[in-house]
């Protein structure tokens, strides 16, 4: 009986927190579309998420592209199909690795920072102070972050795609000794609009997940420094898992026929 009790309380707890998150998300989305809008706050978030994430996303992308070219060469060399490397690099970067790796890196960089900032504002009563100044914290803190995440992640992924493919080109041409013109031609032949677009849609969804988890965990944090620390950890863990989970779901929606 104790086991059943444990399972029951676990399931109830899970449903309860899922419900809270969904209600929070619904209310946050509502605030994104209803005035007043805080443009300065939005501008700051756009720069913070988009511009300041460029180095970390770019570095991740270039090494991923390089290692992809190197790895697929060891695989494909046996079948003397070296031209396939360009295809492998461009398809896996645009469809999968660009959005997923950018999403994971931004989750670590931005999601955690949001949870820490909003969590600290919660425990130091700064969120209450917003309310006393007739400013809805959902509108002032949460809505600009959600909008910025949904808008900026696809742009970051465009950059990651280009840099990733370039990384593959570097390794293919300078290390494996391919003909640059042939490699580029193969790359462009393999580049499909739907691959890139599906990657960008994924990026938008990931941007929503990251900012939502950061804001939610920060907003609901309790109990001082320890609570803020827990909120930060929860954000990275839950955002990362949700990104991988939704990556599968979206791939299924786009490509499984």
């Amino acid at each position: 009986m104790r086991v059943l009790q444990l399972i029951g309380s676990f399931v109830l707890g899970f449903l309860e927190s899922t419900g809270r998150l969904v209600i929070f998300a619904g209310s946050a989305i509502g605030h994104c579309f209803r005035p007043p809008f805080y443009w300065r706050s939005l501008g700051r978030q756009l720069i913070d998420i988009g511009y300041y994430s460029l180095p970390v996303v770019g570095l991740t992308a270039i090494f991923t592209g390089m290692v992809l070219a190197l790895q697929s060469y060891t695989g494909f060399a046996r079948f003397s199909a070296e031209s396939a490397i360009a295809t492998v690099v461009v398809v896996s970067i645009t469809r999968e690795l660009g959005p997923v790796l950018a999403g994971l890196m931004v989750a670590g960089r931005i999601g955690a920072a949001m949870a820490a900032e909003i969590g600290t504002m919660r425990v130091t009563e700064q969120l209450d102070a917003l309310t006393t100044l007739s400013t809805n914290p959902m509108k002032y803190m949460v809505a600009p972050r959600l909008i910025a995440g949904v808008l900026m992640l696809p742009l970051l992924v465009v950059v990651a795609d280009i840099i990733g493919v370039f990384g593959g080109y570097l390794v293919a041409v300078y290390k494996l000794g391919f003909n640059p013109a042939t490699y580029l031609q193969n790359t462009f032949d393999a580049l499909k609009t739907e691959d890139v677009v599906s990657g960008l849609v994924k990026a938008s969804v990931f941007g929503f997940i990251i900012t939502l988890m950061g804001c939610y965990n920060g907003y609901t944090s309790r109990g001082g420094a320890q609570g803020v620390g827990a909120a930060t950890t929860n954000t990275i863990v839950s955002a990362s898992i949700l990104i991988l989970c939704f990556d599968y779901i979206l791939t299924e929606l786009f490509f499984a026929r």
Binding site: P36, Y38, E117, M121, T124, E125, Q126, D128, A129, T132, L133, S134, T135, Y140
Partner: peptide, 24 residues
């Protein structure tokens, strides 16, 4: 508020003027 709860991301004058700016 008890701990003053000033917004640490904003300079002092923007803290004071926050309600005026946010309420447009």
């Amino acid at each position: 508020l008890q701990g003053s709860a000033l917004f640490d991301s904003l300079p002092v004058w923007e803290n004071v003027a926050f309600g005026l700016l946010a309420g447009k």
